[in-house]
Simulated assay, not measured.
Amino acid sequence: MTETAGTVARYTTIAGQYRHELEIRRSRFITVLQRVENEADVVDLMNGLRREFSDARHHCSAFILGPGRDLQRSNDDGEPSGTAGQPMLEALNRRVTPYGLTDLSDIAAVVVRYFGGVLLGAGGLVRAYSESVSRALDTARLVHRERRRLFVIPAPPATAGRLENELRGAGMNIAAVEYKGMSTRLTVAVQDEDAALDAFHGHLAGISAGELTAIPAGQEWVDRA
């Protein structure tokens, strides 16, 4: 995983909500995966599913939040301890993404279980909840998120157009162009990796003969399909 100054610069999440149903020995396991930004989103998802499946016996959950995947929680919701929420969380954690990493985050999984009358035992429950989440993940479209560093370049209006064209031609992402009196401000979003940052500063110096300065202006996260 790419890191800059000790912080994660890239991770993977999912696009929207996905559902998958699995039947095991007459018990129905309905898995709902959803992209979430914070714990409030998880609570809203849980509340909505409890209303939608109000007659189900269990609504077990697991979620991972943050670029560094620092916040992880699970809940068995009445199933024997360690047989539902934790296996679900482990299924999220071990999913290998197209980058070849286990970096899935900003995702919540809820498995709604309708008991079918046949006891599965602890081992059976662990396998059922783990498989339910894994099967649901197979149906989800993954989205790569990258952190980009923002830079503002003040430039004279007479040269701003050429500067913008030069930067775009070099593959730079122009996030905004703002005209203020006798000055134009171009905001450029650069992938937060050393090679990309060096290329940006080097290209700017080259096309402006060292006369223009890129002023740091924070960062943003963007989705890349």
Rank of each mutant, 00 (worst) to 15 (best):
R149W: 06
I207A: 01
L101N: 06
I30K: 05
L49W: 02
L101S: 07
V177P: 03
A108Y: 00
R57Q: 13
R25D: 07
R26G: 02
T187W: 02
S27M: 04
G169W: 11
F115L: 09
T187K: 04
D44S: 12
D77C: 12
M172A: 15
L204P: 08
G117P: 07
M1Q: 14
F200K: 06
A205I: 02
H20T: 05
Y99F: 12
T83H: 11
A209M: 05
D41V: 03
G48P: 02
V43C: 08
L197A: 10
D76H: 09
E220Q: 14
D194Y: 08
M46C: 05
P216Q: 04
R127P: 05
A56Q: 02
A225W: 09
M1P: 13
S183H: 11
V133Q: 05
T83Y: 11
G85P: 10
L125I: 09
D77F: 11
Y114D: 07
W221S: 15
L33P: 10
G121Q: 09
D76R: 10
E52K: 07
H20M: 07
M182V: 09
E90Y: 01
T12D: 06
I30W: 08
S105H: 04
I24R: 14
A217Q: 08
S132R: 03
A9G: 13
D223C: 06
R10T: 06
F200D: 04
P154I: 00
Q72F: 06
E23Y: 04
A160R: 10
V111M: 09
S134F: 08
D44Y: 00
G85N: 11
Q34N: 04
A140E: 07
L212A: 07
S134M: 12
D106A: 03
E37V: 10
I207F: 03
L186A: 03
S208N: 05
A214R: 06
Q219L: 06
L137Q: 05
R28V: 14
R224G: 14
A196Q: 13
E21L: 06
A91Q: 12
S183D: 12
R73T: 09
Q86V: 14
L119C: 08
G82W: 04
A170W: 02
A108W: 00
V143H: 07
Q219D: 13
T83C: 11
L92S: 11
